[in-house]
């Protein structure tokens, strides 16, 4: 057996894992019967179907006559920087408020670009702070902690 279509093979694997995970988790809920479904019935069978589809996708991926397909490289740098800056934003928001966490988000995520310059980033940050304060806080009155809790009280 040779993995001819790598992407399909990995998707199949993903489907199987997720399908089984949902099926197992559903097993903890009452199953019932088809005519009187419990909360577990529908997701359990969906999970099984999903895993079955995964198996079929994998079978298609190892057929020797299939058109070969290779896995691409992952851009781990941007992936990590973008997602991490959102996580940091989330972690800071409740305690440090919108403005400071916004700075972390904008500056942090800007680092992911190959065209990064401090000048452009700082200008961008300032513009966005003003925009966020005017639109979200002042005009729309969204419920945000705006300043750090230890200052605003």
């Amino acid at each position: 057996m040779k993995i001819v279509r790598q992407k399909d093979f990995a998707s199949g694997l993903l489907y199987i894992i997720l399908g089984i995970a949902f099926a197992v988790a559903s097993y903890g809920y009452r199953m019932g019967t088809a005519s009187r479904m419990g909360p577990g019935y529908f997701p359990f069978w969906l999970g099984i179907i999903m895993a079955a589809i995964g198996v079929m996708v994998i079978l298609g991926a190892v057929r020797s006559r299939a058109e070969p397909q290779r896995m691409e490289r992952w851009a781990l740098g941007p992936l990590f920087i973008i997602l991490a800056s959102v996580v940091v934003f989330g972690l800071l928001l409740d305690t440090l408020g919108l403005v400071l966490s916004l700075i972390a988000l904008v500056v942090g995520s800007s680092l992911a670009s190959h065209e990064f310059t401090w000048r452009a980033t700082l200008i961008n940050t300032l513009v966005l702070i003003v925009f966020a304060l005017v639109v979200f806080v002042y005009a729309l009155n969204l419920q945000f902690p705006v300043w750090p809790t230890f200052i605003a009280g």
Partner: peptide, 24 residues
């Protein structure tokens, strides 16, 4: 320029997502 645009998109998305239940 994309380098200016995407941090802004990111910020708006974060605001939108947060405001669904006001929760991080």
């Amino acid at each position: 320029p994309f380098k200016v645009l995407y941090p802004a998109i990111l910020l708006f998305c974060c605001v939108g997502v947060y405001s669904v239940q006001n929760s991080v």
